[in-house]
Amino acid sequence: MDGFERGVVTRISVEIEYPDGSVEITEISDPGHVSAVVFDESAVIATDLCAFNVSESDWRANPAMMVHTDAGAAGIPLGAHNDRRN
């Protein structure tokens, strides 16, 4: 056997509750290429902090998470209330 066999993640759904009480369910596209999902500021890499901590005065601009598709690459902010599609 070459390497370890394991299950493959085919879908990542996240339910986000915003400070105003509204709720959104979002899908992370192409989960096979996701290397990390970061929810806490303490785990956000320094170069991504400006995209994670966007506004102290408007929570709607701040994403709920950062998604990384390659180790060390810039994260993709997801879940900002301003980005809602519905």
Rank of each mutant, 00 (worst) to 15 (best):
D83H: 07
A74Q: 11
A51L: 09
H68R: 09
E15L: 09
D20A: 06
P31A: 01
E5Q: 11
S35L: 06
A36V: 05
V44Q: 00
N53L: 13
S57D: 13
I12K: 12
A43Y: 10
G3C: 04
V14I: 15
A73V: 04
D83R: 04
I28L: 15
V8L: 11
S22L: 12
H33M: 03
M1V: 08
A74L: 14
D70L: 11
S42Y: 07
T69D: 06
T47K: 15
W59N: 03
T26H: 07
D2R: 10
P19M: 12
Y18M: 06
G79E: 03
V54W: 06
E15Y: 04
V34N: 01
T10N: 07
F4T: 14
R11W: 00
H33Y: 08
V8M: 10
E56H: 04
T26E: 01
E41Y: 04
A73I: 00
F4V: 14
M1Y: 04
S57E: 11
G32P: 03
A80L: 03
D40F: 02
D58Q: 06
V38G: 02
M65N: 05
G3E: 09
V37Y: 11
I28D: 02
V44R: 03
E5H: 10
H81P: 05
E41M: 03
E56I: 01
A61T: 12
E5D: 10
A46R: 11
